[in-house]
Amino acid sequence: MEKIFVLTHVDESGTALAKASLEAVSAAVELAKSFSAELTIGLLGADVAQAAAQLAGAAPKVLAVTGQAFAQPRYATDAAACEALVKAAAPTIVLAPSTARFARVMAGVAHRAGGAIDTHITAVSPSLEATRWFYRQRIEAVVKRERRPWFLLLDAGTHAAYSATGAAPAVEAVAVAAPASRTTVAGTRSPQQGEQTIRPNAKLLFVAGAGWTKKQSDGQVHAADAEKLILGFLHAADASLGSSKSLVDQSGENQATLKFMTHLNQIGQTGATPRHAKGLSTCCHGEEPHVVGWRFVNERRAINLDANCGWARGKADVVYLADAFQVMAKVNELLEK
């Protein structure tokens, strides 16, 4: 008989659960239901009283580690807290969201618990087979583990967030002495470019390819126009900005570059594989190694001059054979209205 435990943590506000935590909860509830397993929830944060209300109706038992020492994400304290929670719950299956906070510590926790761990899980079947990607989203595999406890770190956006039903659950405190740590967390810092960077919560991902800084039909490079058009669109559409590797790499080649582009914007290859409802690719060839970063973008459209680009061969839903400079200028005009 499996015993399922889902680990969650409060978000930065300190009063609510991180969205990814609620997604893990619904995955756990579903799984527990499918083979009538017992479900326990673990909760981590300085004060969990308010956040625990979001777990109403999910599980008969909520365990929590609280206290100021656990307010901020830090390896030593988070690992100790999760270790204690797992020990108290004595589960066979541990689900947890792949937040930055838990991704940092969960391998260590699994090690301490004598368990096995698999990460970036996108689905868990009722027969306890877990799906995940290998080789930068190029190969999808389904894995099983004999060893218990088995930790599964779930990717964000793969399950619907749990919504509470009924009264707030009783929370059982698990006492943990905060371990000595030589680390203090000073807070967070946003990149100076701020609004031009990746916005994981945006509905639309806008990807700019190297074509923006190449010679246009008049034989000239129009990097300044490109910048204006792209920034204009991002402001108007509240979109997240991504880039192809070749455009990000251009800074090293001293070609005309878009000043606000950094490696944080890169999609595919060594870059990110974000989840967005929609993606619009512009001036980007759409070849496989680059498009792997689009694996989790649901609806895809592309603007490209080449009818034979990768997008046109089954990678996008719609490809507009057109000059992105002209189209985006018109799009911005419409959005401004």
């Binding site: 096995a116 999808e140 595999a141 099983k144 997008w311 089954g314 990678k315 839903d317």
Partner: peptide, 19 residues
């Protein structure tokens, strides 16, 4: 204790509308 049920390259070819 790790075993693989499957490993495959996903077929993600979409019906592309060329405009």
């Amino acid at each position: 204790g790790l075993s693989y049920v499957s490993a495959a390259v996903p077929k993600q070819t979409r019906e592309t509308r060329l405009v």
